[in-house]
């Protein structure tokens, strides 16, 4: 069996205790949530920490609740299955439930957590390989090497954000609650990212995602998630897109947002889509026209690279198709959009 590097496992029961252990490890520890991403990465020797700090027993990281102001709080250790099957999330934050339902396969969703999916390491076909494979290649700049095999002569790592739930959360204006040595902080998820495939978050690996907070959605909120992949299960996204449409009382779109993933290091919010969609009425011709415009805009703004497996030109050709289909699904209160 493929070997893990040796490590010890710590089992804190509170966030404070976890943070103390992390600080004491002086950079040699990593968080362990569901283990579905870090364990394969450990087996690939993409990291070799001395300790894993297991979050399994930290009660504060659990639970789904809605406060009196209608904000949803998702403990970071909430499993993807719980998110996908939660009736209130399905009703009020549908894009999130849909995105969670399309992550990998059933067992991975039972184990994998929403926090882990948000903080998922970026992925690349030249990186997510065993040590033997990467050594045969001569490594790449994301780990142990200097070269980029995606863009010859490239100076920045372009490994792809591959977290299905991140774009959904971004269209829903999610905020994240972070614990660090300095205490607690809260920030918009949209501000988390940086354009660096080696480490695409503006947080250090020692900081801890405690919870995700989502503001209430509008009375006439529509959302959907679309995912391109080869198989009906297990696969990471080859392209993913989340859609948000908020309708006014007259049934016209008042607010719209789209965010894509599996392109480059960051989840990729589409700009100017609201301009085209706002004021149109789903089901009417003006909406259909706007969808065409948005699809064209998406194709311009989303440029898949040969970073993850799969023909990147084909992935690009699918950007407008999946954008349209996901917009129509959202309008129809349907979805998720995938090939099944």
């Amino acid at each position: 069996m493929l070997r893990m590097p040796p490590f010890t496992v710590l089992n804190p029961s509170t966030v404070d205790e976890a943070m103390e252990q992390m600080l004491a490890a002086a950079g040699e520890a990593r968080w362990l949530a569901g283990g579905t991403d870090i364990n394969p990465n450990l087996k690939h020797r993409l990291l070799e920490p001395q300790a894993l700090i297991a979050l399994e027993g930290v009660g504060e990281l659990r639970g789904v609740s809605v406060n009196e102001k209608g904000w949803l709080r998702l403990g970071a250790m909430t499993t993807l299955t719980e998110v996908a099957e939660h009736a209130q999330i399905q009703a009020q934050w549908p894009a999130l439930a849909q995105a969670a339902s399309l992550v990998s396969g059933p067992q991975l969703r039972n184990m994998g957590t929403i926090g882990g999916n948000v903080m998922l390491d970026t992925r690349c076909q030249w990186y997510n390989q065993t040590h033997f494979w990467r050594k045969s290649l001569g490594y790449c700049m994301k780990k142990d090497g200097t070269e980029c095999h995606v863009i010859k002569g490239g100076s920045k790592c372009v490994a792809a954000a591959s977290n299905d739930t991140a774009p959904a959360l971004m269209t829903l204006d999610a905020e994240i609650e972070i614990a660090s040595g300095d205490g607690r902080a809260r920030m918009p998820l949209a501000e988390l990212w940086q354009a660096d495939g080696i480490w695409n978050r503006k947080l250090s690996p020692q900081e801890l995602l405690v919870a995700i907070h989502l503001p209430p959605t509008a009375a006439k909120h529509h959302g959907a998630y679309g995912k391109l992949r080869d198989r009906g299960s297990i696969d990471f996204p080859l392209f993913g897109i989340a859609v948000r449409l908020d309708l006014d009382d007259a049934g016209k779109i008042a607010h719209a947002a789209l965010c894509a993933v599996a392109l480059q290091a960051r989840p990729w919010p589409l700009k100017k889509v609201a301009d085209a969609l706002c004021g149109t009425t789903p089901g009417e011709q003006d909406f259909l026209d706007a969808v065409e415009q948005v699809a064209a805009l998406a194709a311009k703004q989303c440029r898949p690279m040969p970073n993850i497996p799969g023909d990147h030109e084909y992935r690009h050709a699918m950007v407008p198709v999946y954008t349209k289909r996901t917009l129509f699904a959202a309008a129809a209160k349907a979805g998720p959009v995938h090939h099944l």
Binding site: Q129, W133, F236, P309
Partner: peptide
């Protein structure tokens, strides 16, 4: 192009699942 197997795993070599 290096002669390396493009995806020597059951993640990247995609055999049909029960849904496929």
């Amino acid at each position: 192009r290096f002669g390396l197997h493009q995806g020597p795993s059951l993640l990247d070599y995609r055999i049909p699942t029960s849904l496929d």
